[in-house]
C-alpha cells in the first residue's frame, strides 16, 4: 500500500473523483496554475483544464455562492477556501443558504457542495492564519462538518463527501498536511462522514479529539502508557456534525472517564457538546468529572512563539491531564 501525507491524500481523492465524475470541478483562489497555496490541486489545471479548475476572483462569498448555484443545477463543485480565517465572508452563503436549500424547498433542490477549508494553528500563523472556526458550522443543521486527521481518513471521507448529496464543510488541519504520513489504498474507497473511530483502544479513560489534536492525543496516550502504565482510549471524532454519539457514549461506558481535547477555545465549542452529550446520557457511568484540555479564552492565536506554544494544547499538556484524570 502506498504511503501519503494528508495533502497528498486530499489531492489523490480529488483527482480520482474528478476523473470519475465530470460533474466535479474545483474553484477557489489560486487553485489553477499555482495548484492552491497548499498544492492540493497541483497539476489539475494541466489535466482537467480551465473549465474544471477555476481560479476565482478574491471573493469568498461568491466562491461559495456560485458553487452553490452550480450544485443546485446539477454539478458537484469543490469550493476551496484558502485559509479558514477567510471563510467569514462566506458564512452567509454556507450557514444561511447552503444548509437550508433542501429544507427550504421541501426537498426539491439540493446543494451537494464540498467546501474544503485548511484550518488550525501551531504554524506561526498569528491571528489570521491559525483559526479553527468549525463550531460555527457544526452548530448548523443541514450542514455536514468533518475534520479528518489521517491521510487514510482524508481520502476516504473526501470521496464520501463528493459522492453524497449534502453540503459538506471539510476541515483539513494545515499542520497535518505534511507532518502526518500514512498508508492509503491507491484505489477509491469511502470512509463514512458521520462516524467517529477508536484510533487507540484503552480501558482507563477515553480521550476525544479531532484534527491535529488527535495526533497529540495519540502521542500523549503512548507517553502515559510507557511511563505510567495508564491505558487511554483515543477516539477520533472525525465528524463534528453529526456527532457520532453512539461511539462516544460506548467508549465512556467502558472507561468511565472522559477527557476532551481541542484546539478551539472551549466556551460553546465542539468539546462542550461532547461533554453535554456525556452528561446527558452516561452520567451515572462516570467515575470522574469530564475534563477538558483546550486553549485559554483569548482570540486564537498569538504570533510570538512562546505565547503560541502556551496557547496550543500539546502532548505534554494532554499527558498531564490524563495523569490527573486517571488518579481520580
Amino acid at each position: 500500500m502506498p504511503t501519503m501525507t494528508v495533502i497528498e491524500a486530499v489531492r489523490d481523492a480529488m483527482r480520482g473523483e474528478m476523473r470519475r465524475d465530470p460533474r466535479i470541478f474545483i474553484m477557489g483562489e489560486d487553485v489553477g496554475a499555482r495548484g492552491g497555496v497548499f498544492l492540493a490541486s497541483e497539476g489539475f489545471l494541466q489535466e482537467f483544464g480551465e473549465s474544471r479548475v477555476i481560479d476565482t476572483p478574491l471573493a469568498e462569498s461568491s466562491i461559495v455562492g456560485i458553487a452553490l448555484g452550480a450544485a443546485v443545477n446539477g454539478m458537484r463543485p469543490i469550493a476551496e477556501i484558502q485559509f479558514a480565517d477567510f471563510v467569514w465572508p462566506a458564512i452567509n452563503q454556507l450557514v444561511g443558504e447552503a444548509a437550508r436549500v433542501r429544507y427550504g424547498t421541501g426537498g426539491r433542490k439540493t446543494a451537494p457542495i464540498v467546501v474544503r477549508i485548511p484550518y488550525g494553528g501551531g504554524v506561526r500563523g498569528g491571528l489570521y492564519h491559525s483559526q479553527s472556526p468549525e463550531v460555527i458550522f457544526a452548530h448548523t443543521p443541514g450542514l455536514r462538518v468533518v475534520a479528518p486527521a489521517t491521510p487514510y481518513d482524508a481520502k476516504g471521507m473526501l470521496i464520501s463527501a463528493l459522492r453524497g448529496d449534502d453540503p459538506v464543510v471539510f476541515f483539513e488541519h494545515k499542520r497535518t498536511y505534511r507532518l502526518v504520513r500514512g498508508e492509503v489504498p491507491a484505489d477509491a474507497y469511502m470512509e463514512p462522514c458521520d462516524k467517529a473511530e477508536v484510533k487507540r483502544p484503552g480501558t482507563d479513560l477515553s480521550i476525544f479529539a479531532y484534527g491535529l489534536m488527535l495526533h497529540y492525543a495519540l502521542e500523549a496516550a503512548r507517553l502515559v502508557h510507557e511511563q505510567d502504565g495508564i491505558s487511554a482510549e483515543v477516539v477520533d471524532l472525525r465528524s463534528l456534525r453529526p456527532l457520532d454519539t453512539e461511539t462516544i457514549l460506548d467508549s465512556v461506558r467502558r472507561t468511565s472517564k472522559a477527557l476532551v481535547v481541542q484546539e478551539d477555545t472551549p466556551a460553546v465549542s465542539v468539546g462542550s457538546e461532547v461533554a453535554a452529550v456525556i452528561a446527558e446520557h452516561v452520567f451515572f457511568d462516570l467515575d470522574a468529572p469530564v475534563m477538558r484540555v483546550a486553549p485559554p479564552e483569548i482570540p486564537p492565536m498569538p504570533f510570538s512563539p512562546l505565547q503560541e506554544a502556551a496557547f496550543m494544547p500539546s502532548p505534554e499538556k494532554i499527558a498531564a491531564a490524563i495523569r490527573e484524570l486517571a488518579a481520580i
Partner: peptide
C-alpha cells in the same frame, strides 16, 4: 424557479453559479 432565502442579494452569486453549470455542460 427558486428563492432559497430572505437574505437580500444572496441569489445573485447563486444565479451566476447556475449559469456556470449550464456553460460547463
Amino acid at each position: 424557479l427558486f428563492s432559497f432565502s430572505n437574505v437580500v442579494a444572496t441569489q445573485v452569486p447563486q444565479a451566476v453559479g447556475v449559469a456556470l453549470a449550464d456553460r460547463m455542460r
